[in-house]
Computed example of a mutant assay.
Amino acid sequence: MPVLRFDNVSKQYAGGHVALSGVSFAVDAGEMLFVTGHSGAGKSTLLKLIQLAERPSRGTVLFAERNLAKVRGSRIAAHRRNIGVVYQNHQLLMDRSVGENVALPLVLRGMKRAETGKRVRSILDRLGLAARERALPSQLSAGEQQRVGIARAVIAEPALLIADEPTGNLDPALSSEIMALFAALPERGTSVLVASHDLGLVKRMRKRVLVLEQGQLTDDIAPEDLVDE
């Protein structure tokens, strides 16, 4: 069963700008894939529709076979708890420690403090951040901040992780490291959808690639069809 499905989805903004037009695709449980395209192709709009930060003008977005058009009010927050989000600019709480930032999704779910602490230490250890648990985000490098953002996004083991240009501010070595972390998530039950315009990185990952051009899905490339130029 797909974890996510877009069925002929279009999004037109009030000023008349068409961000997406007739987009259809599905993401299987335990799949990692990329969505790529030039700036303004519609990648960010697509991710916003998944989070219910935007609503489609036409078509249907299904998450675990539930029509997101029917998710309203207090159920929006419940939906978002099933999705981990990694931002390019981290969006960390600068007055909270690394450990407190990472714990936030579990605190919001009402998990007991002892269990929360155990999970936080486990994921920080996995991401090479065990020694930084009490540090403030301002004391971290860009790469460390990005890893904290990833830890926070995956700690609650969401059904789907979405990442918007997650390596945009990172050097190539760190970018590869972050992508390796993402690639390990599907075997733990989390599907991964990454928006990126770094074509070299995307090709090296050898994963399925959706190509957006001016709001239209122009290609859906299988891993075996990716060729190095």
Rank of each mutant, 00 (worst) to 15 (best):
4 L>P: 01
8 N>E: 14
10 S>D: 05
12 Q>P: 02
18 V>H: 07
19 A>M: 08
19 A>Y: 00
23 V>G: 09
24 S>R: 11
30 G>H: 04
31 E>G: 10
33 L>E: 08
33 L>S: 08
34 F>P: 00
38 H>D: 14
42 G>D: 00
43 K>P: 05
44 S>H: 09
44 S>N: 08
47 L>Y: 11
48 K>L: 04
51 Q>I: 08
54 E>W: 06
61 V>N: 12
62 L>P: 06
62 L>Q: 12
62 L>G: 00
63 F>L: 12
63 F>S: 09
63 F>T: 12
64 A>V: 06
65 E>K: 12
66 R>F: 06
67 N>Y: 03
68 L>M: 07
70 K>Q: 15
72 R>W: 01
73 G>S: 12
78 A>W: 03
78 A>E: 12
87 Y>K: 04
88 Q>F: 11
97 S>Y: 05
110 G>E: 01
112 K>H: 14
112 K>A: 13
113 R>A: 14
117 G>W: 03
117 G>Q: 13
118 K>I: 02
124 L>E: 02
125 D>W: 05
126 R>V: 06
131 A>F: 02
132 R>F: 10
136 L>V: 04
137 P>N: 10
139 Q>S: 15
140 L>W: 05
141 S>M: 11
144 E>W: 10
147 R>E: 01
149 G>V: 08
151 A>C: 04
152 R>K: 11
154 V>I: 14
157 E>I: 00
160 L>A: 03
164 D>M: 13
165 E>Y: 03
166 P>Y: 11
167 T>S: 11
169 N>H: 13
170 L>G: 04
177 E>L: 03
178 I>W: 07
178 I>P: 08
180 A>N: 12
181 L>V: 15
182 F>D: 01
184 A>Y: 00
184 A>S: 15
185 L>E: 14
190 T>H: 03
192 V>P: 03
195 A>P: 08
196 S>V: 02
198 D>H: 13
199 L>P: 07
205 M>Y: 02
207 K>F: 07
209 V>A: 00
213 E>W: 05
214 Q>N: 12
217 L>M: 13
217 L>E: 11
222 A>S: 13
225 D>E: 14
228 D>H: 11
229 E>I: 13
